[in-house]
């Protein structure tokens, strides 16, 4: 599964950059995130509960961030072990400035295993997009609130 999204954020790039490395903010914007703890620098553990329609799944995930290039982007790897199977993936987040706004591009590839992979094909990509959109809507709202400025 490949996910590519682009979001336009009405905030200066430096502020966006700081925010997307802020664990407290990440914890709030990750859809269904119940807790996020730093295991070491750029290495986090998250407890996530995801609900898409009738499907609910709890995942214990590990997130590793690497190739950090302030303020233009970083690479991430995520791996989750869950009740409905496992998920793993990786990708890049890139920030660019455009007319005073920040464009956040997200490009990731991932795999889901277990029952979801076997029977949920028609919905996995749509669900992934939905969760991404949810996350970035939350992000936008938090940014707008200035909570992390």
């Amino acid at each position: 599964m490949k996910l590519e999204r682009e979001y336009c954020i009405d905030q200066p790039i430096d502020l966006v950059w700081d925010s997307i490395l802020n664990p407290d903010l990440l914890a709030e914007i990750l859809p269904g995130c119940k807790s996020l703890t730093a295991l070491s620098d750029n290495h986090y553990k998250a407890e996530i509960e995801i609900k898409v329609g009738p499907v609910k799944g709890a995942y214990t995930s590990e997130l590793t961030i690497s190739d950090i290039r302030p303020p233009s982007g970083y690479h991430f790897e995520v791996r989750g072990i869950g009740t409905k199977g496992h998920m793993s993936g990786g990708g890049d987040i890139a920030l660019t400035e455009k007319d005073g706004l920040t464009v956040l591009s997200f490009c990731a590839e991932g795999n889901v295993s277990g029952i979801l992979a076997r029977v949920g094909q028609r919905l996995i990509e749509a669900a992934g997009k939905k969760l991404m959109d949810q996350g970035f809507n939350n992000f936008q709202e938090k940014m707008a609130e200035g909570a992390y400025a």
């Binding site: 009738p54 499907v55 409905k84 029952i115």
Partner: peptide, 13 residues
């Protein structure tokens, strides 16, 4: 007929 199939697979509990 939407819910029970998901429950049988334990996607929905």
């Amino acid at each position: 007929h939407s819910l029970i199939p998901a429950m049988k697979l334990r996607l929905s509990e």
